[in-house]
Amino acid sequence: MLRYVALKTGRAAFVVWAAFTLTFVLLFVLPANPVDLLFDPTELNTVPPEVREQVADNYGFNKPVLLQYADRLGHALTGDFGSSVQSGRPVASAILDVLPETLLLSAGALVLAVLAAVGIALVATSTRRAWVRNVVEALPSGAVSVPVFLSGILILQVFSFKLGWFPAFGDDGPRSIVLPLITLAIPVAGPIAQLLVRSFATEFHSGYVTTSWAKGATRGGIILRDVLRNASLPALTIAGITFGNLIAGSVITETVFARKGIGRLTQNAINTLDVPLVQGIVVFVAVSFALINLFVDLIYPLLDPRMRAVVEAQK
């Protein structure tokens, strides 16, 4: 058991370290002159050489690469990613400032997506009408194939401009989060629903379901008591991986709906070539990704007794 936890934790730590190292190489080593990245491209030619020299010194660009790396890694371990070039604020606090908004949005979207996916799978499995099943099973691929910016604008058009039910943008009050939530949940729900529909169908025709029929169980009872849990297990892993979709989706959603958040922050940081901020965000996303998947790995054995046996066997 302990070995399993150690193994999974080690893997998570490795992912974060790799993300840090990769961004370091991409942002600080590969560019011919990293100092250039620190200035606004349009004003680059007007910057006097002394200033550039001083900035390079401040950022440690004159030191050997390995030393720079060790220095930045050391600071990063204490949560210090330097300061944003644009605002001059520490990267960590810039991220933490907008974190709650994004956390609320993405957690909410994930919950909504999972609910929608389970709903679709339940309807597809429990209906006796073939056409209902066909319609419902087509929904996930539809959800995946519509890009977020398009569905976002569509939803805005209908519910905000036409019907006026919800505000079009901004982040004040619970009503303002409804549309972004739905927009973000749609593409996330797609893959989860696809997987769930398939695994519900597989489990529904498995041997133990026949046993339950023979016991005298009813259709609804079988789906709830037997199929739901066994079919949901693989979706748990997918939900963890889907976190990547959430981040990518939140960049667009927050831009379309003009909300504060990590997504907007990322977009701004990239637009203005705010290198320390970009690195901070990448590492932050990597940490969240690793944590979520670590969490999934750790609770999986609790939900599946077979996994528990495997984990306990490797002492």
Partner: peptide, 23 residues
């Protein structure tokens, strides 16, 4: 459902897949 289990019991072919693995 009232006949199955109550009046007629069923023993399936493959015991390895015929029990719910998580219960």
């Amino acid at each position: 459902a009232r006949v199955r289990g109550n009046y007629v019991g069923f023993i399936p072919q493959d015991p390895n897949t015929s029990l719910n693995p998580t219960k």
